[in-house]
Design a protein around this nucleic acid. Sequence first.
DNA 1: CGACTCACG
DNA 2: ACGTACGTGAGTCGT
Length: 881
Amino acid sequence: MDKLVLIDGNSIAFRAFYALPLLTNSGGTYTNAVYGFTMMLMKVLEEEKPHRMLVAFDAGKYTFRHKDYREYKGKRDKTPGEFSEQIPLIKEVLDAFRIRYYEREGYEADDIIGTLSRQADDRGIDTAIVTGDKDLLQLVTDHTHLLLTRKGVTEAEKYDIQAIHDKYGLHPEQIIDLKGLMGDASDNIPGVPGVGEKTALKLLHRFETVEGVLRNIDDLPGKKLKERVSEHREQAKMSKELATILCEVPLDFSVEDLNYETFSPERVAPLFKQLEFKTLLEKIQPESAGEDLETEAVDVRILGKDDRDAWEEIFEKDCLSLFTELTEPNYHRAEVLGIALSDENDRHLYIPWEIAKDWKAFRRWLTDDSKEKVAYDVKATRVALKRYGLESEGYTFDILLASYLIDPSESGHELSDIADRKLKMTLPSDEAVYGKGAKRRQLEGEELAEHLARKTKAMIDLQPVLAEELESAQLDSLYFDLELPLAGVLARMEWYGVQVDRDRLRSLGQELQKQLDERTRTIYELAGTEFNINSPKQLGEVLFDKLGLPVLKKTKTGYSTSADVLEKLAPRHEIVEEILHYRQVGKLISTYVEGLLKEIYDEDGKIHTRFNQTITATGRLSSTDPNLQNIPVRLEEGRRIRQVFIPSEENWWLLSADYSQIELRVLAHLSGDKNLIEAFRGDMDVHTKTAMDVFHVDQEEVTPLMRRQAKAVNFGIVYGISDYGLSQNLNIPRKEAGEFIQRYFESYPGVKAYMEDVVKKAKEEGYVTTMLHRRRFLPEINSKNYNRRSFAERTAMNTPIQGTAADIIKKAMVRVDEALEEEQLNARLLLQVHDELIFEAPEEELEKLSDQVRRVMEGPVKMSVPLKVDMNWGKTWFETK
DNA sequence: CGACTCACG
DNA sequence: ACGTACGTGAGTCGT
């Protein structure tokens, strides 16, 4: 079967340019459009396996269309130079792939594509046209379909005759009529003013074509519409003509000349190397992946039992780097395989754990806090060693934490990533050394020792570089006084773990399972068929195809069945409510009952989560295996999961202490807004206060609905407000949401000024900071892409607020830990949930503990509004409310 | 392995 | 005209 692929070169390149951040290779050449184009190209080659190919480009500024209409494409912004300079590179890529490309003065890429696709049609060749431009839909036939890029570059949606009909109710030829009526702002095609997509479709469904509409002006609905169409008849006809693709471009070749043979990786690889397309290179030449990794030889001593004494003197060094090799990433379960040490004189030692664990000199060094240790992931190291009964002190530097603070958005903080960034040094990644997935293996002996020695050596080299960067970014206090001590606090929290009532959890699970079974039966009955309710695809088919419920929202793969959609459909069919409940209960069983049961340790009946200190871009913690920061609380049924979290000792209690409205208090302080500050100083209910201001009513007149809406506005403010976001959340028209925001800013002018200021500053500096100088870079804050820029602007508003709140509770944690020690309390800090701390304590300590916790939590930073802490205790987490 | 959905602050 | 609320992690489906 013959298959032709035609690519709209400019359109795809342009999409790529705006979809991807402005990448450059190390030579400073912009490559984002080239990269995106090439990604798309490879995907098409892989999926379509074409026998013939051509990429068409636009040529020159003027085309035959300008003769009839000089303003064609008139309102376009000038093409940025960063884009234009990438076109020759794209052509180089095509040469390397041996794919033909073509452009012709006076014509657009569309016309070339149209001409060839018609030719192919005549010869019965199947054609796929790849473009980001909907205009080309007019070319679709039985033999020709469109791959229209959606989000990003490589995601394309297939449009054949059927798909066009499903979406618009039109035949492909009618697309030009559609444009004729509605116009096209990007090409400056006027159409009929006041007629958008909705009206145009309605008219075409009835009258088929522009001409049909013009013949029947008298039958058009609405006086205004009649007038407009009649007034702009010529303009409509001309618009249709402009939108029509010319399928008769004179070409000096034909479809037969477009043969494409599979490309040869040897020919493409050098270009990919030059452009620095690492991932793509690996795809075409997997074997070359590690080839440029010339790892330097390292001289590492593997310690045997007999030469221990000879090496004891290494522990006299003031400072060593230390890496603890584990059997798996979860250090609560992992075994230690061995220890690597390096000093500043390039001496490297690997100590197998069998030897290290009983070596007195080593243990003494570990516990000696005057012996400085540079580690990578202090928390993991401490916990792993502690599980063997080894306390360790004197961690003066954590490479991982330092890298995170310097740039928390950076995707990789593996040692090899950091060495690459900061030392321009190539260190093999763990994945390269150990393999991944099923191929993963544990190294042994010499190989392992060398890999680890490279790491500890890199750590020694990295430490001063990172320390310098921390200082110059004013991050040193945040690092040394907060994050590094916090790592120790978190290590203890995780190591203690949280006690869980396993039997209770099991019986809760059984109860929920019963409910689920019942709901399943009901749903099958109501649907009249059995299907997998957990599959959005099958569920969509039942709801929208079989039961005929209206489709309110689509995802890129099909119908959306998310809760907000289902809630709107609930009044139309009783099955919807059942499904919502089924989902709720199903979530509780799989994530919380089964998920938590898997994480209970046999040794102590506890759960030991890991708090990730180096994940979030804002400075918050996150929690994994299991995530204890998202245990249900909002709905009563789910909240019962909290009944299984209990104290670990007899006569102990759980105490929870949570900050009241910490983010809005932070906002009040950062913005200095008088009204908001006043509200908190007067200890008012802030949402009620906002309702009074936004709706201009007295306190007594605030209805629950008004308070709920005001609360959503407050959330919106913290998230970096947009009228659209608020309208979605409140399910109200966008205009109304916009008015809420406007009235909010009238009442809180300081907040408005602050938001504008923080965005402005971010645009100048390229980053935002929190109260304790935590930093987040926003490289896209000046992007030309509206979406990317807007996102960065909202982030600029949100990060100082969320991040400062994170700073505050982290500082409270370190101080609470100190206070427990000073006051000689047995109470322990167990969990942190962003604005809440959970402790366990013997009954007799509860009073003293709560006094101390309140005192410490209220005072980590000086602010213009007080911090307020609510406290509750109970025999289970459920009861601490 | 990505998409979808949903739990939390 | 565009197409978004901020920050996370986990389970399930289906390619």
